[in-house]
Design a protein around this nucleic acid. Structure first.
Length: 227
DNA sequence: CGCCAGGGCCTCA
DNA sequence: TGAGGCCATGGC
């Protein structure tokens, strides 16, 4: 089998794993059309906290922030950085992330959620990237999950899987890989959301640091197949 | 015990 | 402009 296309990879993953339903996760707001501003804010905070960190550790940090009534722009601004760091300790890099939460709160004070929501995707992305502590993946996560606009999220798993299969040049830059993928699939928020979640699921099940290629559903077209 | 997790910034060539 | 060091806790 030749290398699968990005569309074929998605179909294979979806057929095997089914819908993942990521951020915004299950419950209430899946039924509604739009997220509340509070929910969007929480997703932004989560996007910062989850940088290079397992989501389970982030959930604890979010719970602590909530318990201490720090899940609002004003609360983040008024709470001492050291206190924030203590609340989010479980998410790792807590000193750095406390600083970033402060910076993001300042940013949201100047650019409220409503203003960001109304911006064209490219302008929004550029603006988010100008914030210290928000890099390409965090920006795309915020755009996709909080603002429900089609910005494809490239993470370490995406790079690993696409790199191993061989359809992205090894060491491909973020925007380069992002363009390769989005040029060949429909531009659709739900699709981007589901695709990224499926890649994460696949990386966790099979395409680990030490890959489990024997039972991998993508192994036929994979250059790095082992065994 | 070692490895790695839904990155990004800074430094230095 | 790209590679390397740094940030740090929790799960396995």
């Amino acid at each position: 089998m030749n290398k699968p296309s990005y569309g074929e990879i998605y179909n294979l993953l979806f057929q095997n794993y089914g819908p993942q339903g990521w951020w915004p996760i299950n419950n209430e707001y899946k039924k509604r059309k739009n997220l509340t501003n509070e929910e969007k804010f929480e997703i932004i905070v989560g996007a910062i906290l989850t940088q290079n960190t397992a989501w389970t550790n982030v959930e604890k940090a979010l719970d602590e922030l909530r318990k201490n009534k720090c899940l609002s722009v004003n609360a983040l601004l008024q709470t001492k950085k050291e206190a924030l760091a203590a609340y989010i300790k479980s998410s790792g890099y807590h000193n750095q992330k406390a600083e970033r939460l402060k910076i993001v709160a300042e940013f949201l004070l100047e650019h409220p959620i409503e203003e960001l929501q109304a911006m064209p995707l490219s302008d929004l992305r550029e603006l988010l990237l100008s914030v210290k502590g928000i890099g390409p993946e965090t920006a795309d996560s915020i755009i996709l999950y909080a603002f429900n606009k089609p910005s494809f999220v490239i993470d370490a798993y995406t790079k690993r899987i696409m790199g191993r299969i061989g359809i992205s040049g090894k060491g491909a830059a973020y925007e380069e890989l992002q363009q390769q993928i989005t040029q060949t699939i429909p531009q659709d928020t739900e699709l981007y959301n589901e695709y990224h979640a499926l890649l994460v699921e696949h990386a966790k099940r099979f395409c680990q640091t030490k890959p489990l290629c024997q039972n991998c559903i993508l192994n036929k077209g994979c250059e790095k197949k082992i065994g």
